[in-house]
Each structure stands twice: as structure tokens, then as C-alpha cells.
Nucleic acid binder design. Structure first.
Lengths: 341, 341
DNA sequence: ACAGGTCGTGAGAGCGCTCTCGACTCAGGG
DNA sequence: CCCTGAGTCGAGAGCGCTCTCACGACCTGT
């Protein structure tokens, strides 16, 4: 498959520049402690030969790979339709690129893959891992931590309360939810419903907590579990409208859910926000801005989360658990007021 | 989580098994030409020590990396909302995993990144590349081909007509579109409209060609350019309904567009399919099945496309009875009849 | 002037692995 | 009986790079 022309080596560069391999190496790696005329000569030689360092040889001696694994534990196709991962990936990619790191993508599907991923990570092929695991009962995070690879989680891992030391980046789901519900209450709404996400995901659970912080568990009939999808939102909204009294406000666990709920509300002739005020979560632009009316929602900067995960991992470097060790970050959310509430 | 224990080397395995490093290597790589008792001894040593080959050292001598780059040229955030890439990625990932290859993800954003990607690929860090480039004027594909890396494109590259030798995997967009439109005509519809995708993408352009194969360019007023999004579909549908006479059938360039169009049709009180028959493209399940009425659409197996791309790259083209040189594959589509047409 | 330091450079030792090549063994044929 | 050849195995030479270390050149201060 490979019939590439022989690539120039450092040796060749050194020869052309009339210096030793050691000096050429120094220049390629920043050029500290090399006098200017030589630096220039080597740089030119690199340019002329089109030299690119052989990463394998470099890794062999440095024991660094300048590569980070991104693990997405994703048994369900559905979630792919959510731009959430894509945006985080983009943030991660940008940050890694800025630090000349490569992104090795590991998608898992079922338990067999877990072993494979564990083996890969333990094999020391990458300098660290960024892990997305949605579900509370996922064994993958534990497996990975045991592999002894520096790791940053995307979203608070469900089990992390006691097995401290897990570094993660998350949005302030609870605080954001609280703010949304408080806003609805401030509007004078009294029957504020909540359409949740899948409650085995911490983000959904945390948003429910935020809702309860304000509403208490007063009327459990106002809470309907759903699944973060538009169709699920429709279903949940129908269910809510059948209850008595039906809500005068709805806090949906994400924008997709809110868009589904909105569709049902209009179909049933309820005016938004006059009859029912509606708030979403995420501020996913193509969704939130183009609904009618545009969605009031809780914004979280998803791409920034990704960027931060990468930054945390890279900064933590090879020495995890040492004093400079990174600690988790919870990003603030902001309420974006549009027309729906 | 202190210092990572030094990983065992082949040398250590050999010592424990009482053989030479060469023999240990042979066993690790399949064990051909080594007598059974030794094979077993080495295998046990590997097990006991938890030995994992050092990929860097291996690559250094073999010049293979067992890694494939996936390049997604993506200037626009929008497209991420499309599960299209995600599904292809999943297919690719599965196939690569099955062959013990790693997936290195390269996302590009703007021209600066092109140079970076070119350099990376030319640097010989991966055995091949799978490239997604949507737009006709994208310089990336050319750049990559010049890098001399085995490459398979996802979707027909726009420029490939003359610069032959580009290997790609695509759906039969034109044929699928033709079948859809023929179906509409077969239903007795005479004013069949087409809401296109962005016409600088070959998939959208090919679907338009398929439409024209059946309808000719008779009434250019029946063709509206759009952008593969639900909101775009709404806009285009509104535009179509204002025309005289308004269409009695619509072929939308993808399901997302169709769902937007459907929303407008219902809003305006047009019955589907009685007044206006509607067909989409993709058979994206969460969308196509859950619309009301469920969408008749042209199915393409997106995940299979990804899998095939990877297979083509890894096997150098010796796929599906194709002899010798790798050649492109165009996958057939199938019309899925549901209620909308 | 010389001892002691700093700085810039090159020589060379590996990093862990694969792979060639030669040594050795054991059949079987001449 | 030796010779040939196939089958096993080990010794050792790198793959391309980084990094330590030694060495010479050049400063300082006395």
C-alpha cells in the first residue's frame, strides 16, 4: 500500500547544513542553545529537503506521542444526531492542533470494545484520554482510570462522587436549570413543568435537581421523563397537556426536546409564551433561533468545554496526580432570553 | 497514580520464556516457523508480564503505522448537525477496528489548516487517508493527492472527472433521485418540484441531475435551491407554494429538507400525500419514520459507505471482485415507500 | 598570564523492535 | 558414509531520533 519515496532523515538535513545530527535536532526542536548562523542553515536545509520528523523514532526515545485518545462510549445511534459531540470534538480538535497533538478517535459499541479500548490505552500509545461516557452504569470510565492513563472526562461521571480524583469538565447544569426555572417563576408562572432528559445521564439528572431546587417535589405530576429528542419532547408534552391542571410553563431539558414540545403546543392551539412559557437548554443555534417563537434557553458553550478538556489534559501532562494536577472545571451557563419565555 | 511502571519489553518476555528476542518477536507476530513448545512458553510470558508491543518501535522499522487519517473539511458548523458524518465515521471506525487500525481524526477549518493537514499526511504518519470534502472548490483533495498518500474519498470529489485515479465511495445519488421522481410521475403527478441541496456539493448536484433525467428542464420554476436543513426546507417550500401553479409533488434533496417542507405543507392545510406527494432522501430513521405522515424516501446505507471506504483503503482496492488497482464504488439506493408518496 | 567558568557543538549510546543471515539440527538420498 | 535441503533458532545490525556527556572555544577575574 505504501510506495512513498524515501523520506529525508535528520542525518540528511545535518549533512546538507554542514552540522552534526545533534545540532540539527536542536534546531528542529526549537533551536535553543544554537547560534544564529547555524539555526538559519539548518532551517534552510529542512525547507529544501522538505524534512518532516519521523514521529515513531521520536516517540521511541521521548516516550511521548503527542497524541490524545478521544473515547466516545456510544451504544445508541440516536445520540449521534445530537450535534453535542460534534461540537465538543471540534473544540478538542482545535486545542490539540494548537499544541501539535493528534486526535485518535475511539468509538465503542458494547462490552467487547471496552476491553479493546482498555488494552489500547494501557498500551501507552497515547499521552492521555478524553472520555465521554453518558450512562451511570458504564464500566468504561473505571476501566480507563485503572489503565493509568491521564484522563479528563466530558461531563461529570456518575460514579465519581466517592472515587475522587476524576477530572472532568462540565457545564453548571444544576445552576442553569435553577436560573431557567426561577425566570419562569419570576414571570408569575405557578405550574412549571419539566421535561427531563434520560435520567441515567448526569446532565439530565443535574438539570432535574436544579428544577427541584426551585420547585421542590411539590407536584411530581409536572415532571415527565424524556430522552433529549424532538419526538420524545412531543410525546412528553402531549402527556403533560392531558394532566389537570395543565402547566403554564415548561422547562425542557434541552432545545431539541423544547422544539418537539413547542410543535405540540402550537398544534393544540396554546400560545407561546402567553399560555405556556417555554425554556430549553443548550442554545443550539440552528434549533433555538429558528423555532417560532425563538426559544429562550440556557446557553452552554459546548465547543469551549471540548477545548478546556484538551487544555486540562495537556497541562496535566505526563505526571498525573502530582501537585500540578488539574482539577475539574464546571463552566457557568447563561440564560438567553428570546421570545418563548 | 504515581510513576507508571516501566512497561515490559520484548527482551523481558524473551528472557522469561528462555528464548531469544527474535523468537519472541516471531511469536508475537503470529508465531510462524516456531515450534509449539516455544510458542506456548512465549505466549505465557506475554500474558504474565502483560506485554504490549511498542507501536513506535515497531513502526520505526516496518514503516507501517496501522493508522488511518480521517479528514473532514468542514468550514461550516451546520453540517455537524447532520448525522451523516457521524454515521460514516461509525462505519469507518468499525472496519478499522476489525483490522487493528487506529483512526486519526483531522478536522479542518479554513485554508491554514489545509497546509497543516497536507504536511501531516505527507509526513507519513499514517498509512492512508479517508477524505470528506463537500465543496467543489475545495483545494484540499488535490493537496492530499499530491501528498502521495493512499486516499479514498467519501462522495464523488467534484474535480475528479479529469484528474482520474481518485478512488471514492458514493451512493448512486442520480439513480436514486431518478427513481424517486419516476415514482412520483408514476403516481400521476405532473407538477413535480425539487428542493435541492447546496449545489456546490456533488451529492446535491447529482440528485438534481437525476430529477432532470426524468423531468427535463421544462419548468425551472419547480426547482428551488436549498441547503439540506429543515429550516431551509421550510423556506423553499413556502417559495414553491407561492408559485402558480403550485406543485402536486415534491422531491426534497434529503429527509431534513423534506421534514421542513412537510411542516409548511401541513401549516398551509395541504394534505400529504393527497394534495402534494413528498419524497425525501437518506432514510435517516429518527427523521423519516417519525414525521406525520411517515416519509417515503430514498435509502442509502451511510454506515456501509464508511465501512467500504475503510475496506477499500486497507485492501488497496481488492474488493468485491475488483482486480488489481483500487477503483471507486457507487452503492445502490433503494426507494422506501411509506405514507408520504 | 592562567585557573575557572560558560557556551556551543559533536560523538555516541541507546529507545524497542523487525528482519536478515548464518549456525545448527535432523531427514533422506546418493 | 557424506551431502543437501528444509526447518528452527539466535546474533546482531539497524530504523531515525533524542539526550547525555565530553571537548574545545571563548570569556571572565585575579
Amino acid at each position: 500500500m505504501t510506495d512513498t519515496a524515501p523520506r529525508p532523515t535528520l542525518e540528511a538535513v545535518a549533512a546538507r547544513a554542514g552540522v552534526s545530527r545533534a545540532t540539527a535536532s536542536r534546531v528542529v526542536n526549537g533551536g535553543d542553545g544554537v547560534r544564529e548562523p547555524l539555526v538559519a542553515r539548518v532551517r534552510r536545509a529542512v525547507e529544501e529537503l522538505g524534512y518532516v520528523p519521523n514521529q515513531a523514532a521520536r516517540s521511541l526515545v521521548t516516550r511521548r506521542h503527542d497524541a490524545v485518545a478521544v473515547v466516545i462510549a456510544e451504544p445508541e445511534t440516536r445520540v449521534f444526531a445530537d450535534p453535542f459531540f460534534a461540537l465538543q470534538l471540534r473544540g478538542i480538535s482545535k486545542e490539540l492542533t494548537a499544541h501539535d497533538n493528534q486526535l485518535v478517535l475511539l468509538l465503542t459499541e458494547g462490552r467487547d470494545d471496552h476491553a479493546r479500548v482498555g488494552r489500547y490505552l494501557a498500551g501507552g500509545h497515547v499521552d492521555g484520554a478524553l472520555v465521554f461516557s453518558l450512562h451511570l452504569d458504564d464500566p468504561l470510565p473505571g476501566l480507563i482510570q485503572r489503565a493509568g492513563v491521564p484522563t479528563v472526562f466530558g461531563g461529570r461521571p456518575g460514579w465519581s462522587e466517592d472515587s475522587g480524583g476524576a477530572v472532568y469538565v462540565d457545564s453548571d447544569n444544576r445552576g442553569g436549570a435553577r436560573e431557567a426555572v426561577q425566570h419562569l417563576v419570576g414571570l408569575g408562572r405557578t405550574r412549571v413543568a419539566h421535561i427531563t432528559g434520560p435520567l441515567d445521564q448526569t446532565s439530565a439528572a443535574d438539570r432535574l435537581e436544579g428544577y427541584r431546587d426551585v420547585m421542590g417535589d411539590a407536584d411530581p405530576g409536572l415532571v415527565v421523563e424524556s430522552d433529549f429528542t424532538p419526538a420524545g419532547g412531543e410525546r412528553a408534552m402531549r402527556e403533560l397537556l392531558e394532566r389537570h391542571p395543565s402547566p403554564d410553563a415548561v422547562f425542557a431539558a434541552n432545545d431539541l426536546t423544547a422544539s418537539g414540545a413547542l410543535r405540540v403546543l402550537r398544534e393544540r392551539g396554546r400560545r407561546v409564551p402567553e399560555d405556556v412559557a417555554l425554556i430549553g437548554f443548550d442554545d443550539m443555534l440552528p434549533v433555538a433561533e429558528q423555532t417560532d417563537p425563538p426559544l429562550t434557553t440556557v446557553r452552554q458553550d459546548i465547543e469551549e468545554m471540548g477545548r478546556l478538556m484538551a487544555r486540562l489534559l495537556l497541562r496535566g501532562g505526563a505526571e498525573q496526580g502530582v501537585e500540578g494536577a488539574p482539577s475539574s472545571v464546571v463552566l457557568p451557563t447563561t440564560l438567553v432570553r428570546r421570545a418563548s419565555a
